[in-house]
């Protein structure tokens, strides 16, 4: 049994302590907005916030996040509302299939917290999420739009 604080709620997850956070979120807690893409910290589809910073949940065992605050895409904004990053994504019509975008949005939200007005170089350095549909140009435009909102 592992106790997890996700989006401000406490969950008792009956999983092996080595289970990656991603699978506890998806299969045990039932929050499927966080996606599986590679399982080896390469693609960023599984990005969540742990104590406020972007982390790849596929490569973090649940045992190491006990007592920490975990935020997933479902908890980024109160129900029915959008953060300025999500709003910029909507206004710029960013997603194609959308599968990578939970992780992309979580990574960008964290970038903007550290650097409210990122340059293109900042974006290139920090955002390494994979989007196979190829939305990078719209992602970049939306990051700047969110920064200027």
């Amino acid at each position: 049994m592992v106790s997890l604080n996700v989006n401000g709620k406490f969950y008792e997850a009956d999983v092996d302590s080595r289970t990656p956070l991603l699978w506890a979120l998806r299969d045990t807690i039932g929050l499927t907005g966080t996606k599986y893409g590679c399982g080896i910290a390469q693609c960023g589809a599984c990005t969540v916030h742990i104590d406020g910073s972007a982390s790849r949940s596929c490569s973090i065992p649940v045992s190491s996040v006990v007592g920490k605050e975990i935020t997933t895409i479902e908890g980024l904004a109160p129900d029915g509302t959008l953060t300025k990053v999500q709003q910029a994504w909507l206004d710029n019509d960013v997603p194609q299939c959308g599968y990578c975008q939970s992780g992309m949005i979580m990574a960008v939200a964290s970038l903007l917290k550290d650097k409210p007005k990122p340059t293109d170089a900042d974006i290139d350095l920090v955002i390494s999420n994979i989007c196979r549909c190829g939305t990078y140009q719209q992602v970049r435009e939306a990051i700047h739009a969110a920064a200027n909102a």
Binding site: G33, T72, I73, E74, L82, W89, Q101
Partner: peptide
């Protein structure tokens, strides 16, 4: 079909 792709609500096959 954008909105549900922004908040984790969209159900893909894997979900």
């Amino acid at each position: 079909d954008t909105r549900d792709k922004l908040n984790g609500k969209l159900v893909y096959g894997i979900d």
